[in-house]
Nucleic acid binder design. Sequence first.
DNA 1: GTAACGCAGATAGGATACAATATACAACAT
DNA 2: ATGTTGTATATTGTATCCTATCTGCGTTAC
Lengths: 226, 226
Amino acid sequence: MALTGIDVSQTASAARIVFEALRKAIVTGELKDGDPLRQDAIAQVFNTSRIPVREALAMLEQQGLVRNQRYKGAVVTGLSIEEAGEIFEFRCLVEAHVMRAAVPRMTPEIIATAHAICEEFAVEQDPMRWGDLNRAFHGTLLAASGLPFHVSTLDSAMDRLDRYLRAQLLLTDGQNRANGEHRAILAACARGDADAAAELAVAHVRGANAALRVHLARIKAGFGQS
Amino acid sequence: MALTGIDVSQTASAARIVFEALRKAIVTGELKDGDPLRQDAIAQVFNTSRIPVREALAMLEQQGLVRNQRYKGAVVTGLSIEEAGEIFEFRCLVEAHVMRAAVPRMTPEIIATAHAICEEFAVEQDPMRWGDLNRAFHGTLLAASGLPFHVSTLDSAMDRLDRYLRAQLLLTDGQNRANGEHRAILAACARGDADAAAELAVAHVRGANAALRVHLARIKAGFGQS
DNA sequence: GTAACGCAGATAGGATACAATATACAACAT
DNA sequence: ATGTTGTATATTGTATCCTATCTGCGTTAC
């Protein structure tokens, strides 16, 4: 028996595929706040029936990405400035803790991987990929912590914030700033300075929040309208 | 038109009812780790079809309370000692932060409500209600923080831990200990000492974790078997 | 003219029916 | 006896159909 095969049982159900696709579309901002999600339309896109779509919407609601109103349908949930601010503070709190736990456990391989992502981020031309690379960078470092519950909670928080972060990266000097801060965090990790890495991570998150507030305030004041 | 009525549109869908009922059954320990959840059986219990049941199971999976395996069905997820320990530490981290934010915002009414729950907890005979009262106590204080995302995250963490806490309350001197610690926390809140309240809350959570570890270790060693 | 009413189309919720897959067990070959 | 294979049954995944509810627009009463 020298036969190599892939685990067929892992083939995802339609519901899971739809869930992941919708999740990504919401997180990246492809689907915007308040956009209605029509079961029929989604079912057609994925060439399936509405049953798996409904399961996907139920899951998205649990993640806080969608609001479901009986007999009215699902819409993408937005965030107020206040809500976004709270979630940023949550990230600061938890990410600092996780980073402190992660630094002493980082192998040279992890540092190298993060470094590669960092460099790719710096030279990437396509703004659509910045968000992905940003999350990959943070995810790589945090995963070393061995604290999967904390990390998954941060992931969930990031899902709520990511569209706003992506928008902010595009419209300001965000990419450069993020790039510099990522390098500083990585350097602290590489020299094993957990406290510095945690502090830099917090500053990084707070900076993004501040930039975002300015950006949203401008839009609200009518400057950002197209 | 002096007619008062309730918002009929809030009548929950079958999926939501099933979700809440299963969630409560899992959280309270009525459904135990590894118990299989048969769609047909659940549908019969709630006198509905399998469609809403499947949506409920999808939601429970997002909450981490259930694991769904394609064509095999859903089972209640258990927690290893390590996983439970991590979630306890998460609670310590977040609850301390939320408590610090909550104390300066606590009104006399909130203190009074928490006090009433505390006293009810002390004299309650039915062990099945201890868990509910414990959560109500913590929830009342934390809600004052005005940090709904943090609080909902803590709630989700509690959902994962609660069955173990309830079991531990039953088998040790847990109720007395919890009761004393609750009163100490409440006293700190009442005198506006946020730092003390946060520290006491952390000690309270860590104590529960320690008691639980001892309890689980005993079971593992064969002492706790019936 | 305005506001209430009613109807029609659109859309979500749910039940039933069918397909796909897993599991247990019996029959069979060795 | 043991291991393999076929088959029956249980269970999950999905499609289709029906029902309940919402929404928008035209009608009508005042």
